[in-house]
Measured scan of single mutants.
Amino acid sequence: TEIRININGVTIHVRDASEELKKLIEHLLRLGADEKEIREVLHRWEK
Rank of each mutant, 00 (worst) to 15 (best):
T1Y: 06
T1R: 11
T1P: 10
E2H: 11
E2Q: 08
E2D: 15
I3A: 04
I3V: 11
I3Q: 04
I3N: 03
I3R: 03
I3D: 04
R4G: 08
R4D: 09
R4Y: 10
I5Y: 00
I5A: 04
I5T: 03
I5E: 02
I5K: 01
I5N: 02
N6H: 15
N6V: 12
N6F: 04
N6L: 09
I7M: 09
I7Y: 00
N8L: 04
N8S: 09
N8D: 10
N8M: 04
N8A: 10
G9A: 04
V10F: 01
T11V: 14
T11W: 01
T11K: 09
T11Y: 02
T11M: 07
I12S: 03
H13T: 12
H13F: 03
H13Y: 02
H13Q: 08
H13N: 09
V14W: 06
V14A: 04
V14S: 03
R15T: 14
R15S: 09
R15W: 10
D16L: 05
D16E: 14
D16P: 07
D16W: 07
A17M: 08
A17C: 04
A17S: 06
A17P: 12
S18I: 04
S18V: 07
S18W: 04
E19Y: 06
E20A: 11
E20I: 06
E20P: 06
E20N: 08
L21W: 02
L21T: 03
K22H: 12
K23P: 01
K23E: 10
L24P: 00
L24V: 15
I25S: 00
I25P: 00
I25V: 11
I25C: 01
E26R: 04
E26I: 08
H27N: 14
H27M: 11
L28T: 01
L28R: 06
L28Q: 05
L28K: 07
L28Y: 07
L29R: 04
L29W: 02
L31C: 06
L31N: 12
L31A: 15
L31Y: 10
G32S: 04
G32C: 02
G32F: 02
G32K: 05
A33D: 01
E35Y: 13
E35W: 14
K36G: 08
K36N: 10
E37T: 15
I38D: 00
R39E: 12
R39C: 05
R39N: 14
E40Y: 02
E40A: 07
E40F: 01
V41Y: 04
L42Y: 00
L42I: 14
H43M: 08
R44C: 12
W45F: 11
W45A: 07
W45G: 04
E46M: 12
E46V: 09
E46S: 09
K47I: 13
K47N: 14
K47C: 11
K47L: 12
K47D: 14
K47Q: 14
